[in-house]
Design a protein around this nucleic acid. Structure first.
Lengths: 243, 243
DNA sequence: TAGTGGTCTAGACCACCCT
DNA sequence: GGGTGGTCTAGACCACTAC
């Protein structure tokens, strides 16, 4: 693998190291070359290497010990499939080792509910595009996701939307918008009769409810969504590095 | 405020900027001075300033726009009290605007359950210190937390433990251990009769269950814990920056 | 004591946005 | 054009750990 200029060097180094760790070129528990060695081997500065290693450490992939060295996390496999941006359920399912499938329940334009209007900073009864989808993990229903997008931000001149797109790609494709950050709220709820039908679960069982709002860099709300997440099918993992 | 040498400069700059944002010295929506100006004003290099700004952006406090400037997030208040390391429930409660109180239900030594033994990498029936506590937000019970610590890692020569300490301080105080990272699993459960008594909730209502394992830099498990989190008392927020 | 990661600097050039 | 954040470099010194 060679460093090329077009793509940011940090990104390339990031890709290379993640690949090498995933391929067990540096097996779990092993020590990585020192920062200086990596820098020289890749032909980049030590600062660039450090930027990447800091990110890998934040994700829990490596553990750094001053005066000793950098080690690949032995529990690497348990960290796969962790929550790393819930805006792409397909990828989440895939990382958990399942084959993702998306069933589009409904794509329709309707008026915003008061809750949606509030969080999307719209006047009530403004039109939103409502997108309801069911995500399968190996043919087992895992997540029912309903998203509302203000019609006002849709720029593309089309009436047919690709229901298979993850939200961030949907926004890029049809709204020319990029997500800057997401605020998620996690709650526990009970399976209702209607919900149980979709997710093939008994009504009355507990289920996770995720309420998410996506913003761009101008702090403009782009999407408001409610998702029901069956943790018995798909674990909801978080990994946090200290500091 | 002045820069001093002893504490890492990055930390000091971090503290200063967070303070200024919290104090509305830079109000929500306003533009921060440029990186160069901040660097000069604080007497540090631009690289140092950038390290701090990157962290603030990752936490969602500021939004950075190339060719334009750096802006304080207008929705700052909504971001307070977010999940930022659940190893300190007291701080979480405080950040949500409540007065935290801790009631120690039990501190006892017992044999590890099979699940605990597995995740703490112990032989079954090895002794663990079990710490059960109830966290109140303004006198309303919010979180019931049960933690198990292998007796083998306890170094302090005492039999009286301070039940008010957050886990990371407990580990530092009695085990001389530092947390490197945490793996959390989030599930939905139902309130049982016994649980309902502690949390003052009707049995059968949905509740969040957090299952967490804390590791040090040697990948040694330090604590295994199960917590029941009443989201109707305390919102469980996550903020994630893109990228 | 040698080597590692941790911290910090000074300066260069680029991509982008505004006016 | 002028200023902003984004990227990258080369090199210095420090703190810590293993040997």
């Amino acid at each position: 693998m060679r460093i090329q200029r077009p793509k940011p060097i940090v990104e390339q180094v990031n890709d290379i190291l993640r690949q090498q760790i995933r391929d067990r070129e540096y097996p779990p528990g092993s020590r990585l070359p020192s920062e200086s060695e990596l820098a020289q081997a890749l032909g980049v500065s030590r600062a660039t290497v450090r930027t990447v290693l800091a990110k890998l450490a934040a994700d829990g992939l490596i553990l750094r010990k001053q005066g000793d060295g950098t080690y690949v996390n032995e529990r690497l496999d348990e960290l796969d499939g962790r929550y790393g941006g819930m805006w792409d359920f397909s990828r989440l399912i895939q990382n958990n080792g399942y084959q993702p499938t998306i069933q589009t329940i409904a794509i329709e334009t309707r008026n915003a509910s008061s809750r949606e209007a509030e969080l999307l900073a719209l006047d009530e009864d403004t039109a939103v595009l409502s997108l309801t989808r069911l995500f399968f993990a190996d043919d087992k229903p895992a997540i029912l996701a309903a998203n509302a997008i203000p019609v006002s931000i849709i720029e593309a001149e089309t009436d047919t939307y690709d229901g298979q797109l993850p939200i961030h790609k949907f926004l890029r494709e049809y709204c020319f918008q990029e997500i800057a950050y997401v605020v998620s709220e996690i709650e526990a709820a009970l399976v209702t009769a209607k919900l149980g039908e979709s997710l093939k679960k008994e009504p009355g069982l507990p289920i996770l409810r995720l309420i998410e709002t996506f913003y761009n860099k101008n702090n403009q709300p782009l999407v408001y969504g409610t998702s029901f997440y069956d943790h018995t099918v798909l674990n909801l993992h978080l990994v946090q590095a200290w500091g």
